[in-house]
Amino acid sequence: MSDLAANPALERRASGRGLLIAGAALVAVAGALVPFWTTGAPFLLMLASQAVIAAILALSLDLLTGNTGLLSFGHAAWFGFGAYVAGLLAKLVTPEMLIVVPTTVIAACLVAAVTGAVLVRQIGKTFAILTLALSQIMFALVFVASDITGGEDGLQGVPVMTVLGQPVVQAQTWYWLLYGVLLAALAASLHIRRSPLGRAWLSIRENAERARFIGIDVNGLKLLAFVMSAGLGALAGALLALFNGAASPDLLSWFESGKILMFVVLGGVGTLVGPVLGGIVFTFAEHYVSSLTSAWLIYFGGLFILIVIVAPGGIFGVLGHAWRRMQGQGR
């Protein structure tokens, strides 16, 4: 402490950090209170739940793209995979969430480990195109196996999920469950970012060749990021299928993959918190703008271009900039 007191700049930074943590805690608590604000508006709570799922999904892509620089055009593959596998497990085996969700995530990780072993050896465009191809294969599989997946009609009649045998029917309970998963996933991701593993990932994003020559297992660590990203993406899909009681092939479409990428870019690639905000903002904006005009995609396309050019750091970049300016004025 004496060190801090002796250095006013450090002291200010420390108090700024405290303020930031307090602010983040406040936002987190406010998020948990959403069910109380929306008591008279069940639809709004449902939308908020969807937004939370989108946030988990966006975070899962940032684990890959933000950490290692690998750009995926087919991340919906894991979202849809999770939704279908969880939906089918719930329908055919058991609606017990504590069995369905971990099984789904493990299955996604296994598939990702096998496909990723080939994919992560590619870089840049090749990797992006191959991920797109992978998602299209999964999309096609839904139609090939339409006897069990329901094909174009989607997977219907997923039973009400249970937790330790107790059915989860209340919208509030659902929201808190999803929100809890989001906070846990975000906390874990932020922790990993600061760990040796997170730093090693950043070194790969920065300069993969140099990383290899200092003895970092570049492909191994890329694969690890790919698998973790797929696992969390499948978790988001599983939750969505159980929440909606259905899964549709749209979840696997290239349009969905593009949307996930937009969440991440809108929020700020590589910032983890940014993509979470991006997923939430996008989901609400999509709902309200699409109810105003059928040309909403055009506006979103324009917004996307604007962000890439004007604010490449996304929402998080803009917020960070504003925060630093405020800090600067305090001096």
């Binding site: 990993i192 040796p196 090693a200 070194s203 920065e206 140099r210 020559f213 200092i214 003895g215 660590l221």
Partner: peptide, 29 residues
């Protein structure tokens, strides 16, 4: 020159130390 330009100077070196010690994958330190 091949360094990690966006990372701090000391982190550039720390990355190599951790790689040498085989703790690049550690999640807890």
């Amino acid at each position: 020159t091949s360094i990690f330009k966006e990372l701090p100077v000391d982190e550039n070196v720390a990355l190599a130390i951790r790689a040498r010690e085989g703790i690049s994958r550690a999640v807890w330190q």
